[in-house]
Write a protein that binds this DNA or RNA. Sequence first.
DNA 1: GTCTATAATAAGATAGAC
DNA 2: GTCTATCTTATTATAGAC
Lengths: 207, 207
Amino acid sequence: MDRDGGTEARILQAATEVFLNKGRDGARMQEIAEKAGINKALLHYYFRSKDRLYEEVFRKECGAYIGSFLASVPETEDMEVFLRFFIDHYIDRLAQRPQVVSFVLWEIQQGGERFGRIIREFLFREENDARPFIVDIVARAVASGRIRKVDPIQFILSLLGVCVYPFVARPILERIVDGLDVLSEAFLEKRKEEVFRLFWEGIQHEG
Amino acid sequence: MDRDGGTEARILQAATEVFLNKGRDGARMQEIAEKAGINKALLHYYFRSKDRLYEEVFRKECGAYIGSFLASVPETEDMEVFLRFFIDHYIDRLAQRPQVVSFVLWEIQQGGERFGRIIREFLFREENDARPFIVDIVARAVASGRIRKVDPIQFILSLLGVCVYPFVARPILERIVDGLDVLSEAFLEKRKEEVFRLFWEGIQHEG
DNA sequence: GTCTATAATAAGATAGAC
DNA sequence: GTCTATCTTATTATAGAC
């Protein structure tokens, strides 16, 4: 038994699936082995322990997640463009791996040490220093009077919250609201439009 | 060894603390026993198994959570009052038990079966039928032209998202943003104000 | 009701053959 | 590299004395 990108890749894929859905503690090495089409012994041969395997998966997923986030921040000072771009891209990325947010947030809830470490590793690499810091974009827009006076951090928190929430609440949403399919094209486009409008109108000067 | 509300109560309290922070799978009966000042055998004497104990805790926490949510929905058609009331009350409730949201959301991520069942049990009880359904309040405000045309479900999703997000992201937020204390009076009041303003401005008719 | 001691099992990890 | 078999430990659960 071999190719599908090699055993190691198959293990990582299986492990990712299991860890994402069951979390670190709920995951079973047995299940991962079966999903990868091998046995437990081989898991330990490739990745010494459950903890290392988890660390590997977590690092990879978080890296991708942080990358998605950063890639969703456009280099513009135009708040209308900024909002449209961020909402559009971030929601699209989240929709591609809907379980990831819950997974990461649950890990964060355990203290956030692991995630914090990975964020640091990730940011102090590549040319990430050059990237525009999302909070500063809002701060400048306020300072220059292009939007009304909002607290930049609070604003970003709100923006992240509205993007993320439908995905973390998805299973229960789809149970409660009849016929709702969070991952459908229809819902996602509707969501983007409503979020954009709410925030865009929400930051205009009064009058 | 006795009083503190009795052994059963002490067990439940200890179990709640452990389950909330570590989740169903991460929790250990040993730890719960120690926290309750008893031994494992007695845990099983009171609650047959880990699963039953968990179910008990989960039901109680979810009940309280749903109760908090419902109690945060005011009986008014005035959207300004509605927003202020809901944001104020819901955030206050969340702040009182900040780990609960993450806990519930993680359970939901596991499929939402448990939570869905409890929601049904809870709603088909007492005089909850009489309670104003939050989505309808928004729908009526739109229909009567008191606010601009928003999708009620999307709007409520956004509202929940912005209220909940700071709490689920709390550990990492406090690591990243220097000096930030999500549970402080200062932060909470600031948050309420910013959220209210964003949404209130966001639902006005354009012009 | 509460304890100590112990059983039963599940899960992670390793040895050793191929 | 991969497997089967096995060890070790952690964890839930129960028996039985007090």
